[in-house]
């Protein structure tokens, strides 16, 4: 078992003919992901990846023709919110948006619309999902993680890769890794994923990677106290970030004394989560807990 994606995932790629879309579709397919279709408006009828993946003009056509149930979005920021609406209206169950830099008001409209529908959005501004050995829906390098019993959920991208790699180096495997993204408004938060890991029989322990800004980590701490029986280790990035400065991610900003790393660490430690001083300590902390 795993969460969100597995062998049955039938993936559609929005923005498949762009540079990044094509590069990562190739990688996902090589990993074994069942990529059934691509969408680029105006390029319907073409085929990519040596004639293996058909391209459609719209998500609706692609879903009708191929039975895709999951979409991944590599569309540029200015068109990305429309791509999310399109995927939601075409009836997809899971939408993973990799795109970085979507205007925050666009995301508020997206999120409030999606809340009325039965669809899950992961991201935007995220590395996507990886269920090692089964399916990769995103840009996480496939060879840095092995199958196993650690569930990983993170607001960061490359920082997460570092943690996956550190786990692999000591022989620890991952059930599913979920990058929820660094934007202030996103589709899926820590609590959603923690709940799924608690339900997932394959997952026996959890790694949470947070960063400064907002209060999602504090809410995750409350949720862990009330609902999680599995051990959790965590790392919070941005302990030394100066306040009032935007650290790349729109979400990573300390605003007027809230969103501080120290507060998040305190909240997590108060509910018996082991918080690492640096990310490479995480495997060690997990081994101590088991």
């Amino acid at each position: 078992m795993s969460i969100l994606i597995n062998k049955n995932t039938r993936l559609l790629v929005q923005g498949i003919t762009g540079n990044e879309g094509l590069f990562h579709t190739t990688q996902m397919k090589a990993y074994g992901t069942n990529v059934v279709a691509g969408v680029t408006p105006g390029k319907g009828g073409e085929w990519v990846l040596e004639g293996k993946v058909p391209v459609f003009d719209s998500v609706k056509f692609a879903v009708e023709a191929t039975g895709a149930n999951t979409s991944i979005i590599f569309v540029p920021a200015r068109f990305a919110s429309d791509a999310i609406f399109e995927a939601a209206d075409a009836g997809l169950e899971l939408i993973v948006c990799i795109t970085e830099g979507i205007p925050v008001q666009d995301m508020m409209r997206v999120r409030n619309y999606l809340d009325q529908k039965n669809v899950r959005l992961v991201g935007p501004n995220c590395p996507g999902l990886l269920t090692p050995g089964e399916s990769k829906v995103g840009i996480i390098p496939g060879d840095i993680a092995i199958p196993g019993n650690v569930g990983v959920v993170s607001r960061s991208g490359t920082l997460t890769y570092g943690v996956l790699y550190a786990l692999k180096l000591v022989g620890m495997g991952v059930s599913t890794c979920v990058g929820i993204g660094g934007d202030p408004i996103n589709g899926t938060n820590f609590i959603d994923v923690l709940g799924m890991f608690e339900e997932d029989p394959q997952t026996e322990m959890v790694v949470l990677i947070g960063e400064i800004g907002g209060s999602d980590e504090e809410r995750a701490a409350e949720f862990i106290a009330d609902h999680l029986t599995k051990p959790v280790a965590a790392f919070i990035a941005g302990q030394t970030a100066p306040p009032g400065k935007r650290m790349g991610h729109a979400g990573a900003i300390v605003e007027g004394g809230s969103g501080l790393a120290a507060d998040k660490i305190r909240a997590l430690e108060a509910v018996a989560v082991h918080v690492a001083q640096h990310p490479e300590q995480i495997p060690e902390l997990l081994m101590k807990r088991v």
Partner: peptide
Amino acid sequence: VNGAGLAMT
């Protein structure tokens, strides 16, 4: 560094 989270880390 590539990535904001890794850069902060």
